[in-house]
């Protein structure tokens, strides 16, 4: 059972519903995990958000009308869950931190499952300080290589606006890297 339509058909039947959902998790768990991880950065937070995402999918699967592909619907839920999670954390941490992106940088630096070198850390920090929408677009385009058309459905934004966001994000990342790169060169 690897086809999305087969999974959806089996989900409608109460006798095969649980098994079909296991197939759905199996098929999308890694892609959704990495999508969420790029947004929240920390593994433990990603694990929480991923669980909540699949619970939301389980509860809302009956409302899926197949107007978009299953993949874009799942990504939309995962993106919304990640943004909601970050906003909740930011509200809690706002009093103790200076900027709203400081939480992400702190999250990145404290992550035990970050194996990158100094340059990769710099790149992740440059992405972390981007405005939310630009950060999402940059991650989805640069790392996940999602097409603008699919991204448009996931984020509910026009293709033109997404291209502009990505262009601005690239410029900002480049500027950040240039400004801070000298500090990591030997």
């Amino acid at each position: 059972m690897t086809n999305d339509q087969q999974i959806l058909d089996s989900l409608k039947d109460p006798s095969t519903r649980e098994l079909a959902f296991r197939h759905l998790i199996s098929k999308y768990k890694e892609r959704l995990y990495w999508h969420i991880r790029k947004i929240v950065l920390n593994h433990d937070d990603t694990d929480d958000v991923l669980q909540n995402t699949f619970i939301k999918i389980w509860n809302g699967i009956d409302s899926f009308r197949a107007e978009s592909s299953l993949f874009t619907w799942l990504y939309r839920i995962a993106t919304n869950e990640s943004i909601t999670f970050l906003n909740q954390r930011k509200r809690k941490m706002m009093s103790s931190l200076n900027g709203e992106n400081d939480y992400l940088i702190e999250n990145l630096e404290s992550d035990a499952y970050f194996d990158g070198d100094a340059w990769q850390m710099l790149l992740q920090k440059a992405i972390a300080v981007l405005p939310e929408k630009q950060r999402l677009v940059f991650n989805m385009k640069y790392f996940e290589e999602i097409k603008y058309e699919e991204m448009s459905v996931i984020l509910g934004t026009s293709v033109g606006a997404l291209k502009a966001s990505y262009h601005h994000a690239v410029k900002k990342v480049e500027e950040y890297v240039k400004t801070h790169e000298t500090r990591i060169e030997p």
């Binding site: 990495w34 593994h43 970050f114 194996d115 990158g116 340059w119 990769q120 992740q124 790392f143």
Partner: peptide, 10 residues
């Protein structure tokens, strides 16, 4: 630069 994933999972 080549794209690499600096993150890993347990």
């Amino acid at each position: 630069r080549p794209k690499t994933n600096p993150f890993r999972t347990p």
